[in-house]
Design a protein around this nucleic acid. Structure first.
Length: 104
DNA sequence: CGAGTGACCGCAA
DNA sequence: ATTGCGGCCACTC
């Protein structure tokens, strides 16, 4: 059977289960949802999709933040810090530890 | 329906 | 370490 589920829905479901204080990358999400090269699309969904989801927990692969989050990178950074995420300059410290790996 | 777009990513200097 | 550029492809209108 082929996946009739839309990429967008998979992405949104995945984002919804990221625990507070943990993060996932756009590319990681795209890969898990079956489209390894659709990282930019995940960003597009972040912009146009369900705003009730914890999009603040989705970051770039290098641990920096994308521009586009309401409030800009500074607002984005503050929200993550309120969840316990620490930064060094504009990048997340301990990306490896904070990276959330969902069971597939 | 088709073209334009972008909350990315990898790689070269 | 930072900057720039090209490719990627589902989404919007």
């Amino acid at each position: 059977m082929h996946e009739n589920i839309k990429f967008r829905q998979l992405v949104e479901e995945l984002v919804s289960v990221i625990p507070a204080g943990r993060v996932m990358t756009y590319g990681q999400i795209a890969t898990i949802c079956g489209k390894p090269r659709a990282a930019r699309i995940v960003g597009g969904i972040a912009h146009f999709g369900n705003t009730d989801l914890p999009w603040q927990r989705v970051v770039k692969k290098d641990g920096s933040l994308a521009s586009g989050y309401p409030g800009g990178v500074n607002g984005h950074k503050r929200v993550l810090e309120s969840e316990g995420v620490t930064f060094h300059q504009m990048k997340i410290v301990n990306m490896q530890e904070l990276l959330w790996r969902p069971k597939i």
